[in-house]
Amino acid sequence: MEGLLDFVLRDILTRVGGVEKCVSEFIRITHTLMSEKAMLRTVPELAFGARTYAGVPVWPQLLGSDAPCMAENAARLAEMGSPGIDLNFGCPAKVVNRHGGGATLLQDPEILHTIVAAVRAAVPGHIPVTAKMRLGYNDDSLALDCARALEAGGAAEIVVHARTKAQGYRPPAYWDRVADVRGAVQVPVVVNGEIWNVQDAQAAVAQSGCSTLMLGRGIVARPALARSILAAMGTAPGSIAHPGEDWSWQDLGPLMHAFWQVASTRLEQKQQAGRVKQWLNLLRRHYPQAQIAFDEMRTLTRPSDVDAWIRISIPV
């Protein structure tokens, strides 16, 4: 998710355990071949075996509508050691859709096929190409056609955000409609959207028939969510940080200190305080203490002030 699940949070959240794979924020492709330096700004993990600190693989995600250019950039990512290439056909942002990217392409399944086929042909056969879509643009009437087009183009897996572009991020997510998509294709389908807790995950699996979930805002708000889901499904998740399933506010303390250490050393100074506030803003959804913390640091902007506040206010 652009501006949220960047390399800093990928690093920190995968330390908790339970995450099998990460997909990067999208790399917007227009009509140019991006430099390796530009690719590394979004996916710095490519310089370290395309894995997070915890060893979780990171797949770069491309967004755009120029099939030859998408293919050329995918080939460059493959040369840089990407374990897979993901294609974004789900972003609902107006600025992205206005420029012919993301969910707007769901109005023309033929274009989806052309882009996926071009990318599939451009990267070595052992590197999977996957795609993320929504149920549609204004409605879901083309959902099955879009999924079939992605599969025919060579997508090895399809993630379906269970809402249309018009529905944005408003609840509910229509997980049962993902079951229809799943029935229309032979490749694995992953369900995504509005999964905030174990109960949501269980309902998404039951209604979609999918065995794999993609988490977005839910895991940012509840860092141990993937572990909790796996535990509820009878699969013991691995962890390098904590043996429990869910995490208390006190458990979260060391993780937040690690987050600040990474953010304060790898982000520009002007970004650092805002990233802490952004994470606290979502943590408020699950942790009442995050509201207090958010209010305390709302006016802080200087990294030195944030550093002092974290040392005093966040339990270790």
Score class of each variant (00 low, 15 high):
Ser208Asp: 04
Asp140Glu: 14
Gln186Arg: 15
Val116Tyr: 00
Ala166Asn: 04
Ala149Pro: 01
Val181Met: 02
Ala203Gly: 08
Asn192Met: 05
Gln186Trp: 04
Asp200Phe: 10
Asp108Ile: 06
Gly168His: 09
Val190Cys: 08
Arg170Gly: 06
Val187Ala: 03
Leu213Met: 05
Leu142Asn: 10
Met133Pro: 03
Asp145Lys: 13
Ala118Phe: 03
Ser211Trp: 04
Ala117Trp: 01
Lys165His: 15
Trp196His: 08
Ile127Leu: 12
Ala204Asn: 05
Pro171Ala: 13
Met133Tyr: 04
Arg170Cys: 07
Tyr169Leu: 09
Glu157Met: 12
Asp200His: 15
Val189Asn: 00
Arg148Lys: 15
Arg163Pro: 08
Ile127Tyr: 02
Leu112Gln: 02
His126Asp: 13
Ser141Thr: 10
Glu151Gln: 15
Ala173Thr: 11
Ala149Arg: 00
Leu112Lys: 02
Val178Arg: 11
Gly209Gln: 04
Val181Leu: 05
Ile115Cys: 04
Ser208Met: 12
Leu213Val: 05
Val129Ser: 02
Gln186Phe: 06
Asp145Met: 07
Val189Asp: 00
Ala201His: 01
Pro171Glu: 15
Pro109Val: 09
Asp140Gln: 14
Ala118Cys: 11
Leu144Ala: 14
Gln107Tyr: 05
Val187Leu: 11
Pro188His: 08
Asp176Val: 12
Gly136Phe: 11
Ala179Thr: 08
Tyr174Asn: 13
Leu106Lys: 01
Gly183Tyr: 05
Pro128Cys: 06
Val205Asp: 02
Lys132Glu: 03
Val129Phe: 00
Thr104Leu: 08
Thr130Val: 07
Gly183Lys: 08
Ile158Glu: 00
Ala155Ile: 02
Leu105Cys: 02
Asp139Asn: 11
Glu151Val: 11
Glu151Gly: 12
Asp145Tyr: 03
Asp176Cys: 07
Thr130Gln: 05
Ile111Phe: 05
Glu151Pro: 07
Arg163Phe: 10
Ala203Lys: 13
His113Pro: 03
Arg120Pro: 12
Leu142Arg: 14
Ala203Gln: 15
Arg134Lys: 11
Gln207Leu: 13
Thr164Ser: 13
His113Ser: 07
Glu157Pro: 05
Asp145Ala: 15
